[in-house]
Design a protein around this nucleic acid. Sequence first.
DNA 1: CCCGATAATTGGTCAAGCCAATTTTTCGAA
DNA 2: TTCGAAAAATTGGCTTGACCAATTATCGGG
Lengths: 223, 223
Amino acid sequence: MTLPKRLYQQIADQVRQLIQNGQYPAGSRLPPERELAQTLGVSRPSLREALIALEIDGTIEIRMGSGIYALSPAKTSNGQRSLGESPTELMQARAVIESAVIAKAAAAVTDSFIEALSAILDSMRAEIAEGRKPIDQDRQFHLTIAEQAGNSVLADIVANLFDERHSPMSDHMRGRFETPETWFAALQEHEAILTALDMRDPLAAQAAMHAHLTASRRRWLEN
Amino acid sequence: MTLPKRLYQQIADQVRQLIQNGQYPAGSRLPPERELAQTLGVSRPSLREALIALEIDGTIEIRMGSGIYALSPAKTSNGQRSLGESPTELMQARAVIESAVIAKAAAAVTDSFIEALSAILDSMRAEIAEGRKPIDQDRQFHLTIAEQAGNSVLADIVANLFDERHSPMSDHMRGRFETPETWFAALQEHEAILTALDMRDPLAAQAAMHAHLTASRRRWLEN
DNA sequence: CCCGATAATTGGTCAAGCCAATTTTTCGAA
DNA sequence: TTCGAAAAATTGGCTTGACCAATTATCGGG
């Protein structure tokens, strides 16, 4: 499916291609705004909107009175990966990071932590029973564990990887729709994780999380 | 130090605050462009530039003819963390992830991989000898290891965490300037990592990487 | 040849207008 | 009185043109 793209997005793509194919290597200065706008056949405000997008994703640097400079790809911020580019690698990365994170969380188990996870699973079960998709509870489960590890940088990464896995566009492109059966399987895997955490067993928690993410990958990619 | 902020950034911050403090909860519609511009005392093109920034970072959704809608924080993409917010946590996250990554890379060692790392360290040594900062070689060293792990998602995360640690703003704010001495120490730590990889010893490689990142944290935060 | 002043070039912000998509309102028929 | 279709209003999208501010280039005098 192709969404109609905003003009600023089209312009940004064109400029990004000029940089990435070497026409403007890193450090070089792009043509001035007015010239670029004319070359691309768009208005200056529209070009500026595109330049803002490129500034945000780290493709260019804008210096008032001086010009627009191409940045090296190494300096770009966390660009959005193309959807479907590495779904297997995405799930593998989740397995690596959430295994490390849950080991930390398992070393910091408290009764309230266990109760919070249990409440999330109760809510998840209720949603499944009503035929709804407990995507928010799924996210909350993983994020609560990540937060218990005590490192907000890791928690952010867990959240972002979760969102990449579950972005609406990602699901739509792959033609994947979860069913109550797949959600129930996920719930059972979550309960196994909770049991391992309740036992304060880091190795068991890691194994349960790894099994869950392996199964999730299978549900996502192989159906 | 405070860089003068672009107007669109200031506007975006204001709108983001309106959303985050509950004045426009997720799902609600913001005032129309023309009204918002008037309320904030800016022009419509400037407001539109801000709205593009907010659209990119997932704070809002724009629907032509319908309006501007606040999104829930859960849906936001990888927002930039405030600089200095968690430097300790940033380094801890790097330790967790790069330890996992180097274990994978150590299981996939090849002669050309070792040669590539060795060449990077040679280049790093030459830069240090000439009194320059081998920041690119430092990054290349970490990223080459991450890429050898065979997972582009993890490699991207390693690159992004490295860039967060070494963003010009981050260094400037903390008043930190590396010296030839600190770079030389980093080079020696890198050589220890290479030795462990050359021995195909995942545990030694993990320990060397962990020691390097611990020392790097100390150099960054405690001087 | 160098330095300071001026001009030119560059990005930043603004006002106003028109186009296109969506939503709301109105009107007429059943 | 209700419903559906058409028209109007509202919303975002894009453009043209103008002026302000920072940086760079040029020129003239010492």
